[in-house]
């Protein structure tokens, strides 16, 4: 037990470069596997949370652009959504990585300012970028669908109150669209967290053996020649993450619907496949 506490101290933050430097090489214990794989989960959460946050704003902008009448905004939004929803995330990782490494190494000169480019090929930046763009495309399609399904009556009522433009969007359109989109968006969030496991199986290199949970699971499965321990541990962690996500999104859902009769009912989580 004490030994396990020591292992936790050594490896709990290994994935962000703190603690013991050398990964265990022999005599693997269950405790080491659980600790290191859990440590890798930090990266999954990092990618998932940040991509979801940034992607949310981008997705809203894209959805509005796609439903709008201006073709200069609508066409690019449609194409963006088509490309990112129509191709595998795995390929997007490869392509973006290859594109990013083609940037000039010395940095780009813009108006005398040199912008450094070397950091974008690191997983924490490059992979995050891909995940943001990817989830933005999927979420934009969800929000676009919600905007199209807004009840006509609500919009007419808003017009009758003399609302227009920004205030109509902020007070009527957007809240209602979110309400409609929320179950599907919950689903998308879960998929996104699952997709973060692809980062270290795509081109992005693991820096100083700092990887995500699947990276460490793979490390152990390869070293112990036994897939029956490491992979179920990752699976367990992800079930926990999924349950937490459903709970958190349920809170938002209650808040979105709090004015409706019977709003206290919890989010009917229907596993619709929206991807």
């Amino acid at each position: 037990m004490n030994q396990c506490l020591q292992t936790i101290q050594d490896y709990a933050l290994r994935s962000i470069g703190l603690g013991e430097w050398m990964l265990p090489r022999s005599d693997f214990t269950l405790c080491q596997q659980i600790t290191l794989i859990g440590s890798g989960l930090i990266w999954n959460l990092y990618f998932g949370v940040l991509a979801l946050f940034c992607g949310f704003f981008l997705a809203n902008a894209l959805a509005v652009a796609k439903i709008g009448r201006n073709p200069w905004l609508r066409k690019p939004a449609e194409w963006f959504i088509f490309v990112f929803r129509g191709s595998p995330l795995f390929i997007q990782f490869f392509l973006v990585y290859e594109a990013l490494v083609m940037l000039p190494r010395a940095g780009i000169d813009i108006l005398g300012l040199t912008i450094q480019t070397s950091w974008v090929t690191k997983a924490w930046a490059g992979a995050l970028l891909v995940l943001v763009l990817n989830t933005a495309a999927y979420s934009a399609e969800i929000f676009y669908g919600a905007l199209r399904n807004l009840p006509k009556g609500e919009l007419e009522a808003a017009d009758a109150y003399g609302m227009s433009g920004w205030s109509r969007y902020r007070r009527i359109v957007w809240p209602h669209a979110m309400r409609l989109a929320w179950p599907a968006y919950t689903n998308e969030a879960i998929f996104l967290f699952h997709a973060t496991t692809l980062v270290y199986f795509s081109s992005f290199p693991a820096f100083r053996q700092q990887g995500d949970s699947l990276y460490y699971a793979n490390y152990f499965a390869d070293k112990t020649f036994n897939p029956f321990v490491a992979y179920p541990i990752v699976a367990g962690y992800f079930i926990l993450v999924t349950l937490c996500l459903i709970a958190i999104f349920g809170i938002f859902n209650r808040r979105l619907n709090r004015h409706l009769p019977g709003a206290a009912t919890r989010l009917r989580y229907r596993p619709n496949l929206v991807r």
Binding site: W21, S203, P205, A206, F207, R208, Q209
Partner: peptide
Amino acid sequence: AESGARLLEFATPDE
């Protein structure tokens, strides 16, 4: 890794 340098690992040598 043992030399103290910062190690970047790749799946294939040409990467």
